[in-house]
Amino acid sequence: MDLVSTSELTRCFGDFVAVNKVSVRVGQGEILGLLGCNGAGKTTLIRMLCGLLKPTSGTARVAGFDLHQTEMIKQHIGYMGQHFSLFDDLTVLENMEFFGTIYGMGRKAIRAEGSLWLERLGVSSQARCLVKTLPSGWRQALAFSVAMLHQPGLVFLDEPTSGLDSVSRRKLWNLIYTAAAGGTSVVVSTHYLDEASYCHRIAIMEQGRIRLEGTPEHLRQEAPGHQLINLFAPRPA
């Protein structure tokens, strides 16, 4: 079953067409990477699929629900934004309790699921530390664990590694793979070209459209000089 399937999804802001007739699908346990420059429409597409933004036209089904069933969608997906999305002055556990409760989880379930993720991260002993006291490299991985706490079948990551160093990035990707192996579908937008290779399938967005789609190996084969960067529009001379 496809967790995401859209058909000619379009969103305009005034005259500006941010997302232009995008049709894309994401299968179960698949990691789809959205690549593109600033303003290519990645964030707008993700926001629509999360139910945060109404499409101008087109239809989509997300996590088994129609796009206008926003409350149901929100309940069944996870989301992590560009900016660090945990509360700095709460402890790791308190953050988990808060987000878990928001998604209607019981205290026991939160503890169980939370300690499982902390174990995967190897930071079980820091559960009662304030988030701001933790090394910055761990925080995004923690934010991902919190987004996964209610065991969503689909998770959206909007430039989750923006500003992260490679050590922290690998840490986060390890968690993403764990989630995908558990059957969760992942949609991730990124600026890092080398990160594209981490995804199962990538879609390159440009001016609101998906210009190219395929596995990283496939696209690299097609790219001039076998470099992904060359898939982007030629730079002005």
Binding site: Q75, F87, D89, L90, F98, T101, Y103, G104, L130
Partner: peptide, 20 residues
């Protein structure tokens, strides 16, 4: 989900923010 629970979660979180 139970909206009361959600409100309670927000309130508890806010109290912690204030305290810290």
């Amino acid at each position: 989900m139970n909206p009361l629970k959600g409100i309670g979660a927000i309130a508890a979180k806010e109290a912690r923010h204030i305290r810290r």
